[in-house]
Amino acid sequence: MPYVVERKPLTLSERIYLPQILAGMRVTLRRLFAPNVTMEYPEQRPAIPTGYRGVPTLVKDPHGREKCVSCQLCEFVCPPKAIRITPGSVEDQPDRTHVEKGPQAFDIDMLRCIYCGLCQEVCPEEAIFLQNQYTLSGYTRAELVNDKAKLYELGGTLPDQHFKWDKKKAAAEHGNTH
């Protein structure tokens, strides 16, 4: 059973239509002098909400040490297979004892990345974060593959005081492995 919408009969001014146009023009004239609602982009940037998923980056801990241990979980979970990790061993440095591996190369192909954030979610070391960076451009395809150096440059340091490997080291030294 179709439902018929009863339309109100048009008033005289609506049928003449010109007064309606004038009313519309009043609205547009008011808009003409209203302040702009847009932002002038490169100079003015929108406030980025927390939890924003921008370009994925690698972060260092406050001591400036690499957090990624090259477990490759992010590489496996990445739906568009944008991440390529070449694992490598970590040479024995005093401040990095017990860290077995680190990435020799870590590439994120930003032409493939879909900004899903699964890498961030899956990372056991909290080493990869989707941060606020959202402007990405380049002249070649190769430019848009972020290598390790670029990723650390974009990522910076995350000020968490977790220091997982320090705790492991302390635990091993004091014989208290949980």
Binding site: R31, L32, F33, A34, V37, T38
Partner: peptide, 13 residues
């Protein structure tokens, strides 16, 4: 410019 101002944009600048 007029279209921009009516739509709340700054227009070409």
């Amino acid at each position: 410019k007029v279209s921009a101002w009516m739509q709340g944009r700054p227009g070409p600048n």
